[in-house]
Simulated assay, not measured.
Amino acid sequence: MFGDVMGMMGKIKETQQKIEETKQRLDTVLIDEQSNDGLLKVTLTANRTIKNVSVDDSLLEDKEQLEDYLVLVLNKAIEKATAVSEAELSAVAKDGMPNIPGLDMFS
């Protein structure tokens, strides 16, 4: 019994380390998104850190349009980045969790 608990604790610690490594790796995964017409482009990491914003000169003439573009494109990029991040972290957590009866929150 005690050995089982120690084994589970070791597995949990190993999983925590893998999660941290995955979070660091997600800093290198880039998500590109752009407006439908390509006038605004953004790049962010899977950890949702903005790396680049490219704005076509034509958008600089209309502040309100630029703001709308930024909101739409950034939200789409954040959704994609969140999906990638959650999928990666979920896979690591599910793979690394010990099989504890009644504790199937990652299933």
Rank of each mutant, 00 (worst) to 15 (best):
F2E: 13
D4Q: 15
G96N: 02
T28V: 06
K11M: 11
T45G: 01
M9G: 07
T22I: 04
V53G: 07
Q24G: 03
M6W: 14
E79P: 02
G7A: 12
V73N: 02
G7Q: 14
Q16A: 08
Q16H: 06
G3H: 14
A93Y: 04
T15P: 02
L89I: 11
N75S: 15
V73L: 05
G7V: 09
V29S: 00
S58T: 15
G96Q: 03
S107F: 10
T82V: 10
S107Y: 07
E61I: 11
L60G: 08
D32F: 13
I12Y: 01
I50M: 11
A46W: 00
E21C: 05
V84D: 03
I50R: 04
A46R: 00
D68Q: 08
G3W: 14
T28C: 07
T22W: 03
E33C: 11
E88Y: 04
G102V: 09
S90T: 15
D32W: 13
D4C: 10
S35G: 14
E14W: 07
A77H: 02
Q17G: 10
G38Y: 13
M6L: 15
A46M: 00
P98N: 10
F2S: 15
Q16M: 11
D95S: 13
Y69S: 01
V92C: 05
L39I: 09
M97E: 07
V92D: 00
Y69K: 00
V73W: 00
T22R: 06
K80Y: 04
K51I: 10
M1I: 11
R25E: 14
K13P: 03
G10I: 03
D32L: 10
G38I: 13
I12M: 07
M97G: 02
T45N: 02
G102D: 06
A93S: 14
S58P: 04
L30H: 14
T15F: 03
M97T: 06
Q65W: 04
L40S: 00
G3D: 15
P98Y: 06
P98G: 09
L103R: 08
G3S: 15
D104Y: 08
E88N: 13
S35W: 08
K51S: 08
A93W: 01
D37H: 13
L70D: 05
M9Y: 12
L44N: 01
V5N: 12
L72A: 11
S58Y: 10
K76G: 06
V53Q: 09
